[in-house]
Design a protein around this nucleic acid. Sequence first.
DNA 1: GTGAAAGCGCTAACAA
DNA 2: TTGTTAGCGCTTTCAC
Lengths: 339, 339
Amino acid sequence: MTSIKDVARDIEMSTATVSRALRGLQGVSDETRERVIESALRLGYVPSPSAAGLASGQTRTVAVIVPMVTRWFFASVVQGAEEVLRERGYDLLLYNLAGDASARHRVFATSLLTKRVDAVLVLSLKPTEEELDRLARLGRPVTIVGADMPGWATVRIDDREAAASATAHLVELGHRRVAYIGGATEGVLDFTAPTARLAGYRTTLEAAGIEPAPELEQDGEFTIAGGARATRTLLGLPDPPTAIFAASDEMAMGVLRAARDLGVRVPEDLSVVGLDDHELADYFDLTTVAQPVLEQGRVAAMQVLAALAGEWQPTQVILPTELVIRRTTAPPPARSAGP
Amino acid sequence: MTSIKDVARDIEMSTATVSRALRGLQGVSDETRERVIESALRLGYVPSPSAAGLASGQTRTVAVIVPMVTRWFFASVVQGAEEVLRERGYDLLLYNLAGDASARHRVFATSLLTKRVDAVLVLSLKPTEEELDRLARLGRPVTIVGADMPGWATVRIDDREAAASATAHLVELGHRRVAYIGGATEGVLDFTAPTARLAGYRTTLEAAGIEPAPELEQDGEFTIAGGARATRTLLGLPDPPTAIFAASDEMAMGVLRAARDLGVRVPEDLSVVGLDDHELADYFDLTTVAQPVLEQGRVAAMQVLAALAGEWQPTQVILPTELVIRRTTAPPPARSAGP
DNA sequence: GTGAAAGCGCTAACAA
DNA sequence: TTGTTAGCGCTTTCAC
């Protein structure tokens, strides 16, 4: 393997100059730089990240901690982050928890990240106090994507507001029995979004003079199957809802599936709103609250890179959402005449 | 940052012994090892991957090159690979091409990977001669997932056979006008699967005495939208097919969507078979050829790790597929009486 | 079973 | 503008 020494010897210069020239630092004459580059190319020189990391204390690597890469949302955020990291010459180290508590523990509690990465991106998870403590002790830029963590750099949407706009849309159409399908507000994988979305839903109903009913709030586990299950429960109620707001598009798909199975027409008998604008939302004609996905990854990556460059300190960034009305929402059916 | 020196000083031993003890090498007395571990724990010692990498020439990192992480299939393979890599203490460096030719070039043509990773996993892509040459010159284990590359370690399914079983299922139901929706056999992101699947489709038709018709072979770009577009073309034909085999489940979803839009009933008027057993296939009641997904990632990771350990040389592994009959296939409609 | 010492390939002061 | 000189924190002979 040819090293920086070989290049230095080749052009009869010191390794320091070669290093400077190759990294584009100033204080190197144009002519020297040219000769260095020519020689490096000719000798097939490739710098060693390990050596550079050891000497400089920088790894040019960013860790991305993902609850589950197979979920479209997370994969998209990763893609957005990777895009800007690659562009700036940083590598992306992927840690996928895959819903596994021991994996979570390994990543956070052991010192996996120490001395290994320059910065960390945490997707959607709500780290525990102890985990936050460890992250802080890394002494490196950390940005949390999709969760509200006061005191930490975050990139997210206003979940409460997003849920409110979905709920308001249904209320404005005339619905009074509006159900909510969300997810556990705690568990192995903790998120803050479910709590905020539930709050947005409730507040909006109350503002419209509608009393939130506990039986209309169901857990859909943020999965298609969970959404379907919750829907079966809701539609089996003595006084079933005429509209359902699912806190994620995947759960909304579950709603559509269950409705179809039960012979309930959407939107004639039941209105459905999701949240995400999943790549399949259009396919399902699903009315939903769109959130920028790639963009959250991009911005988060830019945040930590800027922090590394000392340009600006990461802050709380809130990206806009937008209600996208498609064809799963309509006014409620006329009350059927009683017996 | 506490280093190996601090631990050595703490227990009054050499750094060599500490290093040996921590790595579980033999030739260290039990008592010494215990003292080392205790001290390391107490001092909060965390080894430096850069230093270890520089000294040993091993990075304990594996690169995974992915055409597009946002596609369920690729994300799943990544998840499978990450699982076994993490378990064995390896890190996963993600390179996402995102359909971008310049990204592809950067990863393959520049020496991004040299001195940076111990092994490489390439997903589904069919590297060019030049790219293969560069991969070979890395001098490190490389396994290609989901593509047929003679002479290279690969983990994949038998695409030809998978397509054949899908086609055979349709033929056995009595279909004679069977269409195929696949993807370009070359482009920025080259894959070998489309070619093999097309071949499996054709061969099966021919074996059944059916002459493959060029107009029944369409490009669906391996996307939902592409599948829908191809379907509109097919169903607009003077003599439209009674069955469609889509070479991926996502394209099959496009078929279902287009059929629905056109008022064509599935499976009464049109049978549809996909390939993948996508997480949504069940949702759509889609008949499909299931391929192991996580498993391909796992096996590929195990391959390169075994090669690194010098245990065995990577080879060509073919994982089984299975026809999953759901509710999008049925016998063709009875020929309507002519005018 | 343990230690001494060299060195992996680079960066970063400090000099010149 | 360039060179000298220390390391960075490990691993790895080779002794003992």
